[in-house]
């Protein structure tokens, strides 16, 4: 069993948990992911590593409540345990040699972008951070990003905080001015990453996107996480989860990500009803 040592609500739909998993904490690197199960009959949920404390033996995860299982996970509290927590999986972010990078995060994806920005900052890299949210009450990790960024841009879709617009607005402005980066690293909703990659392509700026497709085992066994990258089939779990964004077939990835949309909606509702009954 893996104990939840800390739980913190980042916004109404996003929660951070620090899980005691010393073997994973010892090896985890930015860009890698873990898979957990909330209970004995639970599905296997892949979540990207949001941080780790090798001394304390904990791994941080940040998740959005999107389906039945994340709803159940959010009802666990500090001191509770979950039966399974496996990792680190996937290949770590390549940060070696990077001097100037733009990190573009969207929504809960910012939770995964942060450790990447931090690692870059710690190695002396100049980091431009652009983070975007739907509205002010969904903003997470602002101070943490500011602390590791040379330049920082906050965007909201409705303009309730920072500048109004999506993350591509400042990105385009920067690139138009003639500024360039060794790499742009983007983590967020597929549609956002698609447009970030489209924005950087004309400028020839290498762009890495972190993919989080449907998967089961996370070790290359099921092939459910397959993507088309540069016309070739790749498995996100072992070949990724990060790929050259200019090569990814995002439309296909978006279509595949909706395979179980109906089932997920039903599961979420069922889980919510379960908790409503408990309250009554």
């Amino acid at each position: 069993m893996y104990k939840i040592v800390r739980k913190k609500s980042l916004n109404p739909t996003v929660t951070q948990m620090d899980i005691y998993a010393p073997f994973v904490a010892k090896k985890a690197l930015p860009g890698q992911f873990i898979i957990l199960r909330v209970d004995e009959d639970g599905e296997r949920i892949p979540l990207t590593v949001a941080g780790y404390d090798r001394e304390a033996g904990t791994v941080s995860i940040i998740f959005q409540i999107v389906g039945g299982s994340t709803e159940l996970l959010n009802h666990k509290n500090e001191g509770d345990s979950i039966p399974d927590f496996v990792g680190p999986l996937g290949t770590p972010t390549h940060t070696e040699g990077l001097k100037k990078v733009c990190v573009v995060g969207g929504g809960v994806g910012c939770a995964i972008a942060l450790p990447v920005a931090r690692a870059l900052h710690e190695q002396g890299c100049e980091v431009t951070s652009i983070i975007g949210f739907r509205s002010k009450d969904l903003v997470i990790l602002e101070d943490e990003f500011k602390a590791c960024s040379t330049s920082f841009h906050m965007m909201t879709d409705d303009g309730s905080y920072g500048r109004q617009g999506n993350v591509c607005v400042p990105l385009n402005e920067i690139l138009e001015k003639g500024e360039t980066f060794d790499e742009v690293i983007t983590i967020g909703p597929l549609i956002m990453m698609k447009f970030v990659c489209a924005a950087t392509k004309p400028y020839g700026v290498k762009t890495i996107a972190s993919m989080n497709p449907i998967m089961i085992d996370g070790t290359g066994m099921c092939g459910g996480c397959r993507l088309t990258v540069g016309g070739k089939m790749k498995f996100a779990c072992v070949d990724g989860p990060e790929f050259d964004g200019h090569e990814i077939d995002f439309d296909e990835a978006m279509s595949r990500s909706r395979t179980y949309a109906d089932f997920e909606a039903h599961e979420r509702e069922a889980a919510c009803n379960l908790f409503k009954k408990e309250v009554l």
Binding site: G220, C222, G224, M233, R256
Partner: peptide
């Protein structure tokens, strides 16, 4: 455990599984 595919058009459509995924 690594499943093989045929490399024919349409293998990334929703509703295409490797036997490993379906059975798992």
């Amino acid at each position: 455990g690594l499943p093989k595919f045929m490399n024919i058009p349409g293998e990334s459509l929703k509703g295409v599984y490797s036997a490993n995924e379906f059975l798992t």
